[in-house]
C-alpha cells in the first residue's frame, strides 16, 4: 500500500445521503476475479443512461468535477453490501479520500484496507465544503499525521481516526504481515480450553 501523509487535491461534491454500495458499483460488475479495473463502472447507473451515454446532470459528469481526487458525500455513505469492489472502484476512478458526516462500518474499514482515508466531519463542515468545491482553484490539504484538513482560504478543522489505522495508512503497512507476528498468541489461544473446537 502507498503510504499517505500530506495529501492535496481537488474535491467533488455528491450531495446525497445513504449512498449504498449497489450504487457505487452495481452488481453486474462484481464478476471479475481481479482487484483492478473497477473505476470505469463507478456509479454506473447514475453516470450512464440505458444506451451507455453519460448523463449530463449527474454530479461526477459535470465539468468542474473532473480531475478531482477527494469525494464529499452525505451521511451514511457506503451502506449496504460488504463488497470491497466499492472502494476499489472509487480508488481506481481516482478518489483517495472520502469526506462525509458518517459511514457504514464495513465500507469504512474496507477503505482503510485499500489505503483510502474516510474522513468524518460534521454536517455543517460538509455543507461548507460542498458549497465551495466547484471553484476551480479550490483545493483541500489533508495532513493525516496531524489529523487536520485545510482549504488554504482560512478553513481548518481536525478529524478523528483510530491510532492503529492512522499508523497503517501513514506507513502503508500490509496488515497481514503485522498479524503474522502474533502467531504465538494465536496458537496459544487455539490450544486453550475456551476455544470453540473445530467444526
Amino acid at each position: 500500500m502507498e503510504p499517505i501523509t500530506i495529501y492535496k487535491g481537488r474535491a467533488a461534491a455528491l450531495d446525497r445521503k445513504n449512498v449504498d454500495t449497489d450504487q457505487i458499483i452495481p452488481k453486474q460488475f462484481l464478476k471479475r476475479i481481479e482487484r483492478s479495473g473497477f473505476g470505469e463502472f463507478l456509479f454506473y447507473n447514475w453516470r450512464f443512461d440505458e444506451t451507455g451515454k453519460k448523463r449530463p446532470d449527474f454530479e461526477l459528469n459535470q465539468p468542474h468535477n473532473q480531475n478531482t481526487s477527494i469525494l464529499i458525500a452525505g451521511e451514511n455513505f457506503g451502506c449496504g453490501s460488504s463488497r470491497e469492489h466499492a472502494p476499489w472502484s472509487l480508488k481506481d476512478y481516482g478518489f483517495d479520500i472520502i469526506i462525509a458526516p458518517s459511514y457504514a462500518d464495513i465500507f469504512k474499514s474496507n477503505c482503510m484496507k485499500n489505503g483510502m482515508v474516510p474522513i468524518a466531519l460534521t454536517q455543517t463542515e460538509v455543507n461548507y465544503l460542498m458549497e465551495r468545491v466547484s471553484a476551480p482553484d479550490y483545493e483541500l490539504t489533508i495532513d493525516l499525521p496531524n489529523q487536520t484538513l485545510k482549504d488554504g482560504q482560512g478553513f481548518e478543522t481536525s478529524f478523528e481516526i483510530h491510532p492503529y489505522w492512522k499508523e497503517m495508512l501513514v506507513k502503508g503497512w500490509d496488515e497481514i504481515s503485522i498479524t503474522l507476528q502474533y502467531d504465538k498468541e494465536i496458537s496459544a489461544y487455539e490450544s486453550q480450553k475456551k476455544a470453540v473446537s473445530s467444526i
Binding site: R35, N110, K113, N114, Y164, E175, T179, L180, Y182, I186
Partner: peptide
C-alpha cells in the same frame, strides 16, 4: 456474526483473526 470485505477475508484466511 458479521460481514467483512475481501481484504478481511484474506486476513482471516491467513491468520484466523481480525483486528
Amino acid at each position: 456474526a458479521f460481514g467483512i470485505g475481501t481484504s478481511e477475508v484474506e486476513h482471516v484466511l491467513a491468520t484466523q483473526t481480525l483486528w
